[in-house]
Design a protein around this nucleic acid. Structure first.
Lengths: 334, 334
DNA sequence: CTGAAAGCGCTTACAG
DNA sequence: CTGAAAGCGCTTACAG
């Protein structure tokens, strides 16, 4: 009923007829070990199904093989599938590289909280953060030399390593698509402009207009909060004020569905009277009727990229921020 | 630029004028320490912001304070928000209890794979599994005495500790609701009957009929695979064969939406001609039109319960499986 | 290329 | 109630 005692170096060393130091060298890929003895050690290791004891290794080496994935409680962790999806991508890649994922769902706000302390003191080899409303903690950690990757673009210009979706390109493509299909007056329902992602999607919208030598009227920009209700509310308002709007780019799918509801309630049709494009290509985009044309981001790839950048840092390889491309998925709504 | 050196027992002991053994006792809540000396130690610990070194603690004590959350790669980890939501609930509760979450997204199929070995050798204090198509690995681990919690009911009658949603009750409530609103012929689009959850929802449907002293015709039971397409396909078939069906319980929201699409394509209305109830109360249920009446399960609570059962086991407290209640959320579709 | 030995930072009998 | 000491299972200069 008790766990079978696991073998240790002392056992391996004895069986292989070498010292524990040699076992250690073999297992750590130190090349100055005699081929034959190394082979013998590996044979024993294999036969006994030996795996290093994590705590002992960590204590002796100072490396933990643990990467923290820090998710802010304030984020919509509980409702938004995004975080879970990214995290599973991260975890899979880390595991493939003998690293493990320590998941921390907690408040990131305080610079001196338990998480701060925890990450600050060599308990993990690196930390991957989601988003960054307040980056004081991350700044502080970065100063200690802890390898860090941000998922989502950091606020200002920084030298943080980050991965993000090409929000600008996505916003641009969405708007361009509406213009190309003949829309004369394209509105946007922006999300939280305080976030980099929200801002970039709006910028993409502007850029698409700019390429036509035009500037969209300020009144064509509405501000929602990524909820269905806000999309519906803002679309209703937009149409009240400007009934000739014939296209709208909503900065996420939920707002897009809200917008469609508002449009149809008014007796107008989608895409006949008003074409609608969303962002995320989430499940709701695929199952709504009319099917929602939406900007797809590869969320799993985002997690994988984050893990890869972390691994590169641990290897002291040069790392560049990574912006992943989006893809416009065309359905019925535009 | 390097992490500031963290204090150790030796520092604390010196500052507090006691031995390291005493520091250890104080920090581990050993009550046979002089009040004043204990207070002094705690003061120093507080002042220095001291936290125990995880690896050292683990190596010396044999306890890791790490709980593995094992998610099978085969599961729809990447598309289904369910797992991420449960996991964040687990993680939060564990953190509040000084435990940490080691996330393992991997293949659980092999009894001898790396995960098996890993969990088998004292690297974690416990493991929380999701679902259980093949429970050979879990059985083996349980034999070693590793505390285990299953999220989702295990296949057969076992003594595994598990938490699950009341799938039977949910299926019963959904069907009952359809009957109560006057439906004469209620069909069911079941999900994967191989899973306990799928089977229980179907059982709940039967029970609701049984309470009326009736037995639903076999032909009223269709089998989908939880996808939108399967819901649409099966609903179309059901209506072809039995045009007088006036109610349907789809065992998840996606199939329910598919069913609605099939019904409307036929020129019928929801709920006028056919009332529809789904299961999950997911985002798509809230944003679809007509709004989908659906059985809500509290997914965060599921994670929290799993964590609580794990903690109880670690404390050697008696634990009972936990079945969480569902709630029927009524919208337009039924 | 190899081994003996010290050390990583805790915990825990043991003796008092 | 308290401390000295051994030990957890590895890694890593150091000396050869």
């Amino acid at each position: 009923m008790t766990p079978k005692p696991r073998p240790t170096y002392s056992v391996i060393a004895k069986e292989a007829g070498v010292s524990e130091a040699t076992v250690s060298r073999v297992l750590n890929g130190d090349d100055r070990v005699d081929q034959e003895r190394a082979a013998k050690v590996l044979e024993v290791v294999e036969r006994l199904g030996y795996k290093k004891h994590r705590a002992a290794t960590a204590l002796a080496s100072g490396r933990t093989n643990l990467i923290a994935v820090v998710i802010d409680n304030d984020l919509s962790v509980f409702s938004d599938p995004f975080w879970g999806t990214v995290t599973s991508g991260i975890s899979r890649v880390l595991m493939e590289n003998e690293l493990q994922t320590l998941l921390m769902v907690t408040s990131v706000s305080s610079v001196d909280g338990p998480v701060a302390h925890y990450l600050n003191t060599g308990e993990v080899d690196g930390a991957i953060f989601f988003q960054l409303h307040k980056d004081a903690l991350v700044r502080k950690l970065a100063k200690t030399g802890l390898p860090i990757v941000i998922t989502g673009s950091p606020h200002a210009a920084t030298d943080f390593v980050f991965v993000d979706t090409d929000n600008f390109g996505g916003g641009h493509a969405a708007t361009k698509h509406l213009i190309n299909r003949g829309c004369k007056k394209v509105a946007i329902i922006a999300g939280d402009i305080e976030t980099v992602a929200g801002h970039q999607r709006l910028d993409g919208y502007h850029q698409a207009y700019r390429e036509l030598g035009r500037v969209p009227a300020k009144t064509l920009t509405a501000y929602g909060d990524y909820s269905y209700e806000s999309g519906k509310r803002e679309m209703t308002r937009l149409l009240n004020e400007q009934p000739d709007i014939d296209g709208v780019f909503a900065c996420n799918d939920l707002m897009a569905l809200g917008a469609i509801a508002a449009i149809e309630e008014r007796g107008l049709t989608v895409p006949g009277d008003v074409a609608v494009v969303g962002f995320d290509d989430s499940l709701v985009a695929q199952t709504s009727r009319p099917g929602l044309t939406s900007v797809r981001q590869d969320i799993v790839a985002l997690g994988e990229a984050a893990a890869e950048l972390m691994i590169a840092q641990l290897r002291n390889e040069p790392v560049e921020p990574r912006i992943l491309p989006t893809e416009l998925v065309i359905r019925e709504s535009a």
